[in-house]
Design a protein around this nucleic acid. Sequence first.
DNA 1: CGGTCTCTTGACGGAGTTCAAAGCTAGTGG
DNA 2: CCACTAGCTTTGAACTCCGTCAAGAGACCG
Lengths: 194, 194
Amino acid sequence: MIDFELLRQHVAKYIQLSATEFETFITDFHPRKINKKNFLLREGEICKYEAFVTKGCFRIYYLDENGDAQILYFAVETWWATDIDSFIHQRPSILNIEALEDTTVLVISKTDKDKLYEALPKVEKMFRIMNQHSLVTFQRRVISSLGKTAEQRYLEFVEKYPALEQRLTQQQLAAYLGISHEFLSKIRKRLSRR
Amino acid sequence: MIDFELLRQHVAKYIQLSATEFETFITDFHPRKINKKNFLLREGEICKYEAFVTKGCFRIYYLDENGDAQILYFAVETWWATDIDSFIHQRPSILNIEALEDTTVLVISKTDKDKLYEALPKVEKMFRIMNQHSLVTFQRRVISSLGKTAEQRYLEFVEKYPALEQRLTQQQLAAYLGISHEFLSKIRKRLSRR
DNA sequence: CGGTCTCTTGACGGAGTTCAAAGCTAGTGG
DNA sequence: CCACTAGCTTTGAACTCCGTCAAGAGACCG
């Protein structure tokens, strides 16, 4: 299964598992397909599964009072898509997770994941390290949003995720940057005149 | 030691440790005092210690090209102060950690913390959970910064950390909210006229 | 084709910044 | 204990960045 191979490579970046340990690891991961414009999670639902993306792309976003989407992040291949808060406490989520392309994932439920922590304590370490990395990423994002202009944040994004820009519409990218799509259009025009 | 008691209570929120396990836990934590306006960490240094605040307050901030401080967070009693990225990879930090009051902490080094993970795997779980909570907090902060006005963010802060507002100058709070201190002054005036 | 979605462009408005001046507060030394 | 300074806060005027609205031009898909 090519899907599990991708997960195996991902895990190997954090911890070392023997072949049999990896068998244990993947026992409770199940493949699933979410087609474009369908949802892995909707606001108000409980986030039952943590999903490892093997193909495609999600946007994880918050809908504000005005119905505008604020995009927390995009999850492409080898990223994880969850509402962590909803998942760990098994309470209603405030986030939506929607497929922007036909997307395939490997999902694991909360109870299965807790069992996995028991069975393979190394997995605890893996998720601790992954969480630390996410934390650093979000801290950097907060710093950018505090001090940088929209143009600087756009350039940072392009530099950091060059491949991703191609897959997104301008509106989605604008919702991630926290600006209007019209203004993003103007930024791009300004930059192209150099 | 009253300091260790605060840490004991903090740990108890996440995991259960026996008296002897807690003894092991605190072995490599050392008390330290950082007076007002002194630094626990400066940009460019390697973050050698993770610090649990037992009294006082830090600001953890980034200095941009113009020399303006962008405050990532304030660490008061029972909070942890670190540059995670610098600490886990033991590489130069981009953050500064400065005491806003005379502050006492319990610090642990990277190698001692790694030993602790070995000795007490439960501690791995504790930090995983703590990291998840921080992650949720920073995700929320990103959402706020994407979609809310300065006034809304100010009101959110006051509601979430009512005690903290008293301890901060307006400039510090403004640097946390990502606005000029003059504008925060105007927001407060506007709100008081109701 | 026809409709829907996306991108572009311009005019106008508002949120927030910058600069400067003045008042206030708090710490510091004599 | 007063005097002085340095930092903090307030306020206003001019300016900038970016949002909103509206209209038109592509682009894509059934």
